[in-house]
């Protein structure tokens, strides 16, 4: 299953105005892994994600997806393999109806209509949104939008799912449902987020970015218990690892 591997080596990127965002990022993921990318605002998370399917091109370093390096020639293969779920579903759901949106990718792949139909309905069923297929995107709730945005990517049968802040804008219950859904996926998952409780639930491995560099890469539990690392990276221990903050607060003055 080597073709599901993701390898990033010495990646560098600067904005047109010269601000360096990525300064030599390297990591390697194998098939089926769920990896969180965490870090402060501006640490380079979103920029890193955009490099993974050629939305942005690195100024130095390489990206390999499966057996191929990412370049102009392999771009369409890479985009089919790496499904990207953007942070704001309103940016991703641009077609007039949910159905059209989920069909957008498969139609661009040049699949025959029956195949497209099958894939759309299957993707919508996977995220539990089959009943929404005729709705326009602006008539969906936040959770429904997110589910449809994921379906729109699933319909292209990607091997790798890349998600930017999947739990933002969601209420606690919808967030929980989304996490449960993502747990069922067998894809390689790369999730950039501030939601460390979700990371703990979902990802076995965590990569911490700070000022465009990888400062830690390892098992999630170990990283999220490292107070010093979290503090220096503008992060905070997830609530469920803090014990009960209320009781702790009571204990302190009693001592």
């Amino acid at each position: 299953m080597s073709h599901h591997l993701v390898e990033v080596k010495d990646l560098e990127y600067a904005y047109p105005d010269g601000t360096k965002v990525l300064r030599g990022v390297s990591f390697r993921l194998t098939h089926g892994e769920a990896v969180a990318i965490v870090g402060a605002n501006g640490a380079g998370k979103s920029t890193l994600l955009l490099q993974l399917n050629g939305c942005l091109w690195p100024q130095a370093g390489t990206v390999r997806i499966g057996d191929f390096p990412l370049n102009k020639g392999t771009l369409s293969y890479v985009r089919r393999t790496v499904g990207m779920v953007f942070q704001d579903p309103d940016d991703q759901l641009f077609m007039p109806r949910v159905y059209d949106d989920v069909a957008f990718g498969p139609l661009n792949l040049g699949l025959p209509p029956e195949e497209v139909e099958d894939r759309v309905m299957q993707a919508l069923a996977t995220v539990g949104a089959a009943h929404l297929k005729d709705r326009p995107p602006y008539r969906l709730s936040g959770g429904e939008k997110r589910a449809v945005a994921i379906a729109a990517v699933l319909s292209m049968s990607p091997a790798i799912l890349v998600m930017d802040e999947p739990t933002s804008y969601l209420d606690p219950k919808t967030r929980r449902q989304l996490i449960e859904l993502l747990k069922t996926f067998k894809h390689t998952r790369i999730i950039a987020t501030h939601d460390l409780d979700m990371v703990l639930d979902l990802c076995s491995r965590t990569i911490v970015l700070k000022e465009g560099q990888v400062v830690a890469d390892g098992p999630t539990l170990a990283i999220l218990q490292n107070d010093e690392l979290l503090h220096s990276s503008s992060l905070e221990k997830p609530l469920c690892l803090q014990g009960c903050p209320v009781c702790q607060g009571r204990k302190a003055p009693a001592d």
Binding site: M84, F104, N108
Partner: peptide, 18 residues
């Protein structure tokens, strides 16, 4: 951003409606 999202799903300048 929309353009990025479109390109990520294979947009090549033509919108296809089924």
């Amino acid at each position: 951003r929309i353009h990025l999202a479109m390109r990520s799903r294979g947009f090549d300048g033509t919108i296809r409606l089924l």
